[in-house]
Write a protein that binds this DNA or RNA. Structure first.
Lengths: 355, 355
DNA sequence: AAGGGAAGTTAAAACGTTTACACGACACGG
DNA sequence: CCGTGTCGTGTAAACGTTTTAACTTCCCTT
């Protein structure tokens, strides 16, 4: 056996066909399995391909095939534990079907988001998944409507994870957690522990995910017979730094409270640190709950009681739903359930401040 | 102005050319900027493209251009904070140059790693970055040698982040942190706090990154005049669960120690939890240090003293180095520096057990 | 024995770009 | 006025695959 490996340039299907003594058409069919080919011929072609270390050119394939199995997931940043889990779910579900998955990080910049979607159009992605809450203003609505129509006209699907569709008529589907139910449940948990003065830390008006959590929080309060004034929302937005800053501020204020409901676990992380910095104890002096149950939430100080949103499942669901029912998908709205996970950051309110 | 947008099928460059009254060659030149075109003509083409919402077909482009600007980063899992940061660095550096970045997760499975690299060959990736330590056995060496040659023959570069090249002659370059120096530094930190009985939790023989940390640990001990028997390495591997299990085990054993050096921050997280479970205090009873300084390390209980490995910078460096000096790159070995970040998980050894 | 398929195969035409080559126009120096 | 160079543009040939339509064989039915 001589030197079969061609060192210069890529091996093409033509060379494989030649070596197997068939035409490129037959070789293509044997390799792709798109059309039946007698076992003997097939074996010969496969053998030739192996000998030559043949690698199909995905571009040529996509060019003639008019598209390719590729999904794109767009997040603010991949280092956010929650987004990372969603991306992992998308990647896993895509990989299961032999699809390629590319991830784009926008850093929260609309400009980069647009560029990335444009790139995905050029690349022929058949599925783009935008994940993460966002404040819903006119610019947002216009942007997403543009994506939806542009992608739709190229035969691609758009799914919005945790962010709203600007209009039910738009060719996009949304998959998200039932934020209101989750927030209501964990607020009720705090209430049943005896807390009456609970502050919500991490509001971001216009962000539909956060607004829903706030709504759930208010609803739970109301259900418990508390007056609307019992609700106190600090609109500090998300992120560890924001939580730390806002909590520090809050502790310096005259506001009375015995528990804080953080908009997500990262805010809770910042809040916990701020509380520890002032020498107060959790849950002895203040109880804290978070949202999302990121993987390290049980390593916080103390382990965090929070609501578990199965992020990886969200990612998987997004691609599954988008690919399952192509026609009926557009405009559909899917809600995923959540549940509380109880750890050590909630206790009874301190006696002196029970109300 | 009528209905310019064609609803069926994608707009091709031919239609743009037609509308602008030029040939496809001129249109291509105007759009890609590969060849000078008089401003007037150029403007006309660009206008037509905008009107038609033309989107170039990346596949056709790559097919004739023989490749594309695409980098691939392969990690065990994207939800690991450290890997996520590396991936973010790669993504950022790639995006800065207008490259596309795709990430693959292997779950530690060699089979999936091979499939992914194969896929990247088909897709024409020009840069693939394998990140994360691995035990270096024959299968590994063979696998990586295969990747290196296969990619090299398609004109792509291979970079290994935190894993060894099987052979200096192989066409791959490695970029990693100086694990031995980092481990030596943090061990010295423990020693200067008074600890003499330090156990290393998270060894994984054959894993070069961990072996280097163990070597640094032993070196620091030796430099302090301690006998080789002072070193005690628990080979439990990495991950939060492994750390928790091994620490629990260790606490039940008769082994005397006052400090533990965890192989990475996730192991430390598990260890901290195990210690807390038995009612012991950190750093009062036991001091703990980690490795990597993941974003949430300061939210551990207590905030973790660890060595900071700028993971995002590792990712950026990988693509920068690979793209900078194409010829000289192969076989090169780059070491990135690290430094200690001191928090609250290290204290003096308890008096009764100072040695 | 003729006709009708089925099965296996192939030649050639797509897919949408880029680019090598050629061609004409035009300016300029001789 | 004629070469010579430059500039702008167009024609057509790539790039590597899949697929349509056609063409053989060969077997089976009648």
């Amino acid at each position: 056996m001589g030197n079969d490996m061609v060192s210069k340039g890529r091996v093409t299907i033509r060379e494989v066909a030649e070596r197997a003594g068939v035409s490129t058409a037959t070789a293509s069919r044997a390799l792709s399995g798109n059309h039946p080919v007698p076992p003997a011929t097939r074996a010969r072609v496969l053998r030739a391909a192996r000998d030559l270390d043949y690698v199909a050119n995905a571009h040529a394939r996509a060019l003639v095939g008019g598209g390719r199995k590729m999904a794109a997931v767009v997040v603010r940043q991949v280092t956010s534990p929650f987004y990372a889990q969603v991306a992992e779910g998308v990647e896993a579900e895509a990989a299961d079907r032999g699809w390629l998955c590319v991830v784009g990080a926008t850093g929260g910049d609309a400009q980069r988001e647009m560029e990335f979607v444009q790139l995905m159009r050029e690349e022929g992605a058949r599925l783009v998944i935008l994940v993460g809450g966002v404040v819903e203003d006119d610019a947002y609505r216009e942007r997403v409507a543009h994506y939806a129509h542009a992608l739709d006209s190229s035969g691609a699907r758009l799914v919005l994870c945790g962010r709203p569709a600007p209009d039910p008529e738009i060719p996009a589907l949304v998959v998200e957690f039932d934020n209101e139910a989750g927030a209501r449940a964990i607020t009720a948990h705090l209430l049943s522990a005896g807390h009456r003065r609970i502050v919500f830390l991490g509001g971001l008006p216009g962000n539909t995910a956060l607004d829903a959590r706030v709504a759930g929080y208010r609803a739970a309060l109301a259900e418990h017979g508390l007056p609307p004034e019992a609700a106190h929302v600090v609109d500090c937005g998300l992120g560890r730094a924001a939580g730390h800053r806002a909590m520090t501020e809050l502790l310096k204020s005259t506001r009375e409270f015995t528990a804080v409901f953080a908009g997500d676990d990262m805010v809770a992380a910042g809040a916990l640190r701020a509380i520890a910095d002032t020498g107060l104890r959790v849950p002895g002096d203040i109880s804290v709950v978070g949202y999302n149950d990121i993987p390290l939430a049980e390593d916080f100080n103390p382990p965090l009681t929070t609501v578990r949103t199965p992020a990886e499942e969200l990612g998987r669901a997004a691609v599954r739903i988008a690919l399952r029912d192509p026609e009926h998908a557009a405009g559909a709205h899917h809600l995923l359930g959540t549940h509380i996970v109880v750890r050590d950051s909630v206790g009874a309110p301190p006696p002196g401040r029970a109300l």
